[in-house]
């Protein structure tokens, strides 16, 4: 009995000590280093406009629907998509009727927006929701198709848009880890800044 009570006391003290070290000391140490060395990243890689107003994060996607902009992937985050306080995917499975209907709608809308013939297949990332619902990127194929539309609406030459696109393409890690993608938010910001 004594050993049981003794162990219980040790367990309580150990919990408190470890909570102080791993839940107090440790995160604060990481915080201090992070804020000292990488303040931009540690605070969310935020993008501010000329007035200092936060317009988003370089890492977090935003919804765009107007023809003047590149469009991001469909999003299942929150009720209206791209809700950065409610990340998540659709979690619809491969035999889901609902997912099939959504994809059918999106394929038709994408073709209509970009003047694609029925025979051309649509880039897969353009009609599927991402895992986080906040994917900041679209694939290069998807961006190339949209570039023609954006150039036409904005009265730019295709090569002007392609140059911007290349500048906002984030390459695969060391050229082979993961996959390259075009950052939709920073690209659209650059398009607007160029227009001014």
């Amino acid at each position: 009995m004594n050993s049981l009570l003794g162990s219980l006391r040790t367990a309580v003290v150990a919990t408190l000590v470890l909570a102080a070290v791993t839940g107090g000391l440790y995160p604060v140490l990481v915080w201090a280093i992070a804020q000292g060395v990488f303040p931009q990243q540690a605070n969310g890689s935020l993008i501010r406009d000329a007035d200092g107003v936060v317009r988003g994060s370089r890492l977090i996607g935003q919804g765009f629907t107007s023809e003047r902009y590149f469009h991001p992937r469909p999003s299942a985050a929150g009720a209206n998509g791209y809700d950065a306080s409610s990340s998540g995917g659709s979690n619809l499975g491969p035999t889901s009727q609902k997912l099939r209907d959504l994809i059918q709608e999106r394929v038709a809308a994408y073709r209509a927006e970009n003047g694609m013939p029925e025979t051309n297949s649509v880039p897969a990332d353009a009609v599927t929701a991402s895992a986080s619902g906040l994917d900041p990127h679209i694939s290069l194929a998807n961006a190339r198709i949209q570039a023609a539309r954006v150039a036409r609406v904005r009265g730019l030459t295709p090569s002007q848009v392609e140059t911007l696109m290349a500048a906002h393409t984030e390459s695969a890690g060391f050229g082979f880890l993961g996959q390259p993608g075009v950052n939709v938010l920073t690209l659209n910001l650059a398009l607007d800044q160029g227009a001014r």
Partner: peptide, 12 residues
């Protein structure tokens, strides 16, 4: 009409 690039639903 989705391109045969793999299963992209729920991937980044």
């Amino acid at each position: 009409g989705v391109a045969a690039e793999g299963n992209w639903e729920g991937k980044e």
